[in-house]
Protein backbone atom coordinates (compact mmCIF):
# COMPACT_ATOMS: atom_id res chain seq x y z
CA UNK A 1 0.00 0.00 0.00
CA UNK A 2 2.74 2.38 1.00
CA UNK A 3 4.44 1.72 -2.31
CA UNK A 4 1.29 2.44 -4.26
CA UNK A 5 0.77 5.71 -2.41
CA UNK A 6 4.37 6.75 -2.94
CA UNK A 7 4.20 5.84 -6.62
CA UNK A 8 0.94 7.72 -7.00
CA UNK A 9 2.39 10.80 -5.31
CA UNK A 10 5.49 10.68 -7.48
CA UNK A 11 3.41 10.11 -10.59
CA UNK A 12 1.20 13.05 -9.70
CA UNK A 13 4.24 15.24 -9.08
CA UNK A 14 5.67 14.26 -12.42
CA UNK A 15 2.26 14.85 -13.99
CA UNK A 16 2.22 18.32 -12.46
CA UNK A 17 5.61 19.01 -14.03
CA UNK A 18 4.36 17.74 -17.39
CA UNK A 19 1.29 19.92 -17.10
CA UNK A 20 3.35 23.04 -16.45
CA UNK A 21 5.29 22.39 -19.67
CA UNK A 22 2.36 21.11 -21.70
CA UNK A 23 -0.14 23.87 -20.87
CA UNK A 24 1.85 26.51 -22.74
CA UNK A 25 2.88 24.12 -25.46
CA UNK A 26 -0.75 23.27 -26.07
CA UNK A 27 -1.94 26.87 -26.15
CA UNK A 28 0.89 27.91 -28.45
CA UNK A 29 0.24 25.09 -30.88
CA UNK A 30 -3.51 25.53 -30.72
CA UNK A 31 -3.34 29.22 -31.45
CA UNK A 32 -0.35 29.49 -33.76
CA UNK A 33 0.26 26.01 -35.21
CA UNK A 34 3.81 26.26 -33.89
CA UNK A 35 5.15 23.17 -32.18
CA UNK A 36 7.58 24.86 -29.83
CA UNK A 37 10.70 22.71 -29.60
CA UNK A 38 12.29 25.44 -27.50
CA UNK A 39 9.78 24.91 -24.72
CA UNK A 40 12.11 22.60 -22.86
CA UNK A 41 14.78 25.27 -23.11
CA UNK A 42 12.40 27.74 -21.46
CA UNK A 43 12.04 25.29 -18.58
CA UNK A 44 15.83 25.02 -18.30
CA UNK A 45 16.17 28.80 -18.32
CA UNK A 46 13.67 29.03 -15.48
CA UNK A 47 15.47 26.29 -13.57
CA UNK A 48 18.90 27.88 -13.96
CA UNK A 49 17.68 31.39 -13.19
CA UNK A 50 16.05 30.12 -10.01
CA UNK A 51 19.15 28.14 -9.10
CA UNK A 52 21.33 31.18 -9.77
CA UNK A 53 19.16 33.45 -7.64
CA UNK A 54 18.74 30.92 -4.83
CA UNK A 55 22.49 30.32 -4.70
CA UNK A 56 22.87 33.83 -3.36
CA UNK A 57 23.62 35.77 -6.55
CA UNK A 58 20.43 37.81 -6.37
CA UNK A 59 20.21 40.20 -3.43
CA UNK A 60 17.35 39.20 -1.19
CA UNK A 61 16.94 35.79 -2.76
CA UNK A 62 18.21 32.64 -1.12
CA UNK A 63 17.54 29.00 -0.47
CA UNK A 64 15.10 29.45 2.37
CA UNK A 65 11.68 30.94 3.04
CA UNK A 66 10.88 34.23 1.41
CA UNK A 67 14.27 34.26 -0.28
CA UNK A 68 13.40 31.07 -2.12
CA UNK A 69 9.99 32.41 -3.14
CA UNK A 70 11.78 35.44 -4.56
CA UNK A 71 14.20 33.15 -6.41
CA UNK A 72 11.29 31.21 -7.93
CA UNK A 73 9.61 34.46 -8.96
CA UNK A 74 12.87 35.62 -10.51
CA UNK A 75 13.28 32.34 -12.41
CA UNK A 76 9.71 32.52 -13.67
CA UNK A 77 10.17 36.12 -14.75
CA UNK A 78 13.37 35.32 -16.64
CA UNK A 79 11.66 32.41 -18.39
CA UNK A 80 8.72 34.62 -19.32
CA UNK A 81 11.03 37.25 -20.71
CA UNK A 82 12.93 34.64 -22.72
CA UNK A 83 9.67 33.35 -24.19
CA UNK A 84 8.56 36.84 -25.20
CA UNK A 85 11.93 37.55 -26.80
CA UNK A 86 11.72 34.22 -28.64
CA UNK A 87 8.30 35.08 -30.03
CA UNK A 88 9.12 38.64 -31.03
CA UNK A 89 12.58 37.98 -32.45
CA UNK A 90 12.16 34.62 -34.18
CA UNK A 91 8.56 33.49 -34.45
CA UNK A 92 6.98 36.73 -35.58
CA UNK A 93 9.32 37.42 -38.52
CA UNK A 94 8.56 33.90 -39.77
CA UNK A 95 4.80 34.32 -39.54
CA UNK A 96 3.09 32.36 -42.31
CA UNK A 97 6.02 29.94 -42.66
CA UNK A 98 5.19 27.22 -40.12
CA UNK A 99 8.03 24.91 -41.19
CA UNK A 100 10.63 27.63 -40.57
CA UNK A 101 9.01 28.56 -37.27
CA UNK A 102 9.40 24.99 -36.05
CA UNK A 103 13.00 24.87 -37.29
CA UNK A 104 13.82 28.11 -35.48
CA UNK A 105 12.51 26.69 -32.22
CA UNK A 106 14.54 23.52 -32.85
CA UNK A 107 17.66 25.69 -33.15
CA UNK A 108 16.89 27.53 -29.94
CA UNK A 109 16.20 24.21 -28.26
CA UNK A 110 19.72 23.10 -29.22
CA UNK A 111 21.53 26.36 -28.52
CA UNK A 112 20.13 27.18 -25.08
CA UNK A 113 21.19 23.97 -23.31
CA UNK A 114 24.60 24.33 -24.99
CA UNK A 115 24.90 27.89 -23.71
CA UNK A 116 23.85 26.83 -20.23
CA UNK A 117 26.49 24.11 -20.15
CA UNK A 118 29.06 26.55 -21.55
CA UNK A 119 28.41 28.93 -18.68
CA UNK A 120 27.74 26.58 -15.79
CA UNK A 121 29.21 23.31 -17.00
CA UNK A 122 27.56 20.20 -18.41
CA UNK A 123 27.19 18.47 -15.05
CA UNK A 124 24.19 18.55 -12.76
CA UNK A 125 24.32 21.22 -10.04
CA UNK A 126 22.73 20.59 -6.66
CA UNK A 127 19.58 22.66 -6.34
CA UNK A 128 19.25 24.68 -3.14
CA UNK A 129 15.83 24.68 -1.54
CA UNK A 130 14.21 25.48 1.79
CA UNK A 131 14.65 22.76 4.39
CA UNK A 132 10.88 22.66 4.84
CA UNK A 133 10.44 21.46 1.28
CA UNK A 134 13.14 18.82 1.30
CA UNK A 135 11.54 16.64 3.97
CA UNK A 136 8.80 14.06 3.79
CA UNK A 137 5.40 13.61 5.36
CA UNK A 138 3.46 10.52 6.23
CA UNK A 139 0.40 9.49 4.22
CA UNK A 140 -1.27 6.06 4.52
CA UNK A 141 1.97 4.58 5.71
CA UNK A 142 4.14 6.10 2.98
CA UNK A 143 6.75 8.83 3.35
CA UNK A 144 5.91 11.35 0.63
CA UNK A 145 8.49 14.01 -0.26
CA UNK A 146 7.05 17.47 0.33
CA UNK A 147 8.27 18.75 -3.04
CA UNK A 148 5.69 16.55 -4.80
CA UNK A 149 3.03 18.48 -2.96
CA UNK A 150 4.60 21.79 -3.94
CA UNK A 151 4.58 20.81 -7.60
CA UNK A 152 0.97 19.65 -7.42
CA UNK A 153 -0.06 22.84 -5.66
CA UNK A 154 1.70 25.01 -8.21
CA UNK A 155 0.16 23.09 -11.10
CA UNK A 156 -3.29 23.43 -9.55
CA UNK A 157 -2.82 27.18 -9.13
CA UNK A 158 -1.62 27.53 -12.72
CA UNK A 159 -4.55 25.48 -13.98
CA UNK A 160 -6.99 27.60 -12.05
CA UNK A 161 -5.36 30.84 -13.17
CA UNK A 162 -5.38 29.73 -16.80
CA UNK A 163 -9.04 28.73 -16.58
CA UNK A 164 -9.91 32.11 -15.11
CA UNK A 165 -7.82 33.93 -17.70
CA UNK A 166 -9.33 32.01 -20.61
CA UNK A 167 -12.87 32.12 -19.31
CA UNK A 168 -13.16 35.54 -17.75
CA UNK A 169 -10.94 37.98 -19.60
CA UNK A 170 -11.17 39.50 -23.04
CA UNK A 171 -7.60 38.39 -23.85
CA UNK A 172 -8.58 34.87 -22.87
CA UNK A 173 -11.62 35.11 -25.12
CA UNK A 174 -9.39 36.17 -28.00
CA UNK A 175 -7.07 33.22 -27.35
CA UNK A 176 -9.94 30.74 -27.28
CA UNK A 177 -11.43 32.18 -30.45
CA UNK A 178 -8.01 32.22 -32.11
CA UNK A 179 -7.51 28.54 -31.41
CA UNK A 180 -10.69 27.92 -33.41
CA UNK A 181 -10.19 30.35 -36.30
CA UNK A 182 -7.32 32.81 -36.33
CA UNK A 183 -8.33 34.57 -39.54
CA UNK A 184 -11.83 35.31 -38.30
CA UNK A 185 -10.43 36.89 -35.16
CA UNK A 186 -8.46 39.38 -37.24
CA UNK A 187 -11.52 39.92 -39.43
CA UNK A 188 -13.31 41.14 -36.30
CA UNK A 189 -10.70 43.86 -35.91
CA UNK A 190 -8.49 42.15 -33.33
CA UNK A 191 -4.71 42.08 -33.59
CA UNK A 192 -4.25 38.36 -33.06
CA UNK A 193 -0.46 38.71 -32.99
CA UNK A 194 -0.70 40.30 -29.58
CA UNK A 195 -2.38 37.11 -28.44
CA UNK A 196 0.59 35.21 -29.89
CA UNK A 197 3.04 37.10 -27.71
CA UNK A 198 0.71 36.68 -24.77
CA UNK A 199 0.46 32.89 -25.05
CA UNK A 200 4.22 32.67 -25.44
CA UNK A 201 4.60 34.71 -22.26
CA UNK A 202 2.09 32.54 -20.42
CA UNK A 203 3.63 29.33 -21.73
CA UNK A 204 7.12 30.55 -20.87
CA UNK A 205 6.04 31.50 -17.36
CA UNK A 206 4.43 28.11 -16.73
CA UNK A 207 7.41 26.22 -18.12
CA UNK A 208 9.90 28.34 -16.16
CA UNK A 209 7.90 27.80 -12.99
CA UNK A 210 8.01 24.10 -13.82
CA UNK A 211 11.78 24.41 -14.12
CA UNK A 212 12.10 26.21 -10.81
CA UNK A 213 10.01 23.63 -8.97
CA UNK A 214 11.39 20.74 -11.02
CA UNK A 215 14.74 21.62 -9.47
CA UNK A 216 13.20 20.70 -6.12
CA UNK A 217 11.75 17.49 -7.55
CA UNK A 218 15.01 16.32 -9.07
CA UNK A 219 17.24 17.91 -6.42
CA UNK A 220 19.52 19.27 -9.11
CA UNK A 221 19.59 21.21 -12.37
CA UNK A 222 21.33 20.20 -15.55
CA UNK A 223 21.28 21.70 -19.04
CA UNK A 224 19.41 18.84 -20.68
CA UNK A 225 16.60 18.59 -18.12
CA UNK A 226 14.03 20.57 -20.05
CA UNK A 227 14.68 18.90 -23.36
CA UNK A 228 14.29 15.43 -21.90
CA UNK A 229 10.89 16.41 -20.49
CA UNK A 230 9.75 17.80 -23.81
CA UNK A 231 8.79 14.55 -25.47
CA UNK A 232 6.58 13.59 -22.55
CA UNK A 233 4.98 17.01 -22.69
CA UNK A 234 4.28 16.38 -26.39
CA UNK A 235 2.43 13.20 -25.43
CA UNK A 236 0.38 15.18 -22.93
CA UNK A 237 -0.44 17.86 -25.49
CA UNK A 238 -1.54 15.40 -28.15
CA UNK A 239 -3.53 13.36 -25.67
CA UNK A 240 -5.22 16.34 -24.08
CA UNK A 241 -6.13 17.98 -27.37
CA UNK A 242 -4.43 20.99 -28.86
CA UNK A 243 -5.30 24.23 -27.18
CA UNK A 244 -7.15 22.57 -24.33
CA UNK A 245 -5.77 23.40 -20.89
CA UNK A 246 -8.13 21.13 -19.02
CA UNK A 247 -7.34 18.30 -21.41
CA UNK A 248 -3.64 18.84 -20.84
CA UNK A 249 -4.15 18.64 -17.07
CA UNK A 250 -5.99 15.33 -17.28
CA UNK A 251 -3.53 13.86 -19.76
CA UNK A 252 -0.57 15.00 -17.66
CA UNK A 253 -1.88 13.19 -14.60
CA UNK A 254 -2.57 10.08 -16.68
CA UNK A 255 0.85 10.04 -18.29
CA UNK A 256 2.68 10.69 -15.02
CA UNK A 257 0.86 7.89 -13.22
CA UNK A 258 1.16 5.35 -16.05
CA UNK A 259 4.84 6.07 -16.38
CA UNK A 260 5.58 5.69 -12.67
CA UNK A 261 3.56 2.52 -12.18
CA UNK A 262 4.78 0.86 -15.36
CA UNK A 263 8.39 1.71 -14.57
CA UNK A 264 8.06 0.24 -11.11
CA UNK A 265 5.98 -2.87 -11.70
CA UNK A 266 7.52 -3.92 -14.99
CA UNK A 267 11.05 -3.44 -16.22
CA UNK A 268 12.52 -0.02 -15.66
CA UNK A 269 12.11 2.01 -18.81
CA UNK A 270 8.99 0.24 -19.96
CA UNK A 271 6.86 3.09 -18.65
CA UNK A 272 8.78 5.64 -20.70
CA UNK A 273 8.51 3.35 -23.69
CA UNK A 274 4.79 2.86 -23.17
CA UNK A 275 4.21 6.60 -23.09
CA UNK A 276 6.21 7.19 -26.26
CA UNK A 277 4.43 4.39 -28.09
CA UNK A 278 1.18 5.90 -26.86
CA UNK A 279 2.14 9.15 -28.60
CA UNK A 280 2.61 7.39 -31.92
CA UNK A 281 -0.59 5.41 -31.50
CA UNK A 282 -2.63 8.49 -30.64
CA UNK A 283 -1.33 10.42 -33.61
CA UNK A 284 -1.96 7.56 -35.97
CA UNK A 285 -5.45 6.89 -34.70
CA UNK A 286 -6.46 10.49 -34.34
CA UNK A 287 -4.27 12.67 -36.56
CA UNK A 288 -6.78 15.48 -36.19
CA UNK A 289 -5.68 15.70 -32.59
CA UNK A 290 -2.69 17.60 -33.80
CA UNK A 291 -3.33 18.74 -37.35
CA UNK A 292 -6.97 19.62 -37.46
CA UNK A 293 -8.91 22.57 -36.20
CA UNK A 294 -12.60 22.29 -35.91
CA UNK A 295 -13.44 25.22 -38.13
Amino acid sequence: MATVVLLAATGLGLGALYFLVAAGLSLIFGLMDVLNFAHGALLSIGAYATWWAASGHLPGAGSGGAGFVLAVCFGTAVGTLAAVVLELALIRPLYGRPREQVLATVGVGLAVPALLSAIWGPDARPFPGPAALSGTFGLLGARIPVNRLVLLGAAAVVLLALRLFLGRTRHGLVVRAGVEDRAMVTALGIDVRRAFTLVFAIGGAAAALGGALGGLYYGSVDPGQGTSLLIFAFVVVVMGGMGSVAGAALAAVGVGLVQQFANYYTTSGLGDLAVVVLLAALLLLRPRGITGRLA
Partner: peptide, 13 residues
Protein backbone atom coordinates in the same frame (compact mmCIF):
# COMPACT_ATOMS: atom_id res chain seq x y z
CA UNK B 1 -0.29 7.41 -42.71
CA UNK B 2 -0.33 10.88 -41.20
CA UNK B 3 1.21 13.99 -42.67
CA UNK B 4 2.54 17.36 -41.64
CA UNK B 5 3.64 17.91 -38.09
CA UNK B 6 1.87 14.70 -36.99
CA UNK B 7 4.24 12.73 -39.20
CA UNK B 8 7.20 14.52 -37.62
CA UNK B 9 5.95 13.67 -34.16
CA UNK B 10 5.32 10.02 -34.99
CA UNK B 11 8.86 9.65 -36.32
CA UNK B 12 10.09 11.39 -33.18
CA UNK B 13 8.12 8.98 -31.02
Amino acid sequence: RVSGIAFSMVTLA
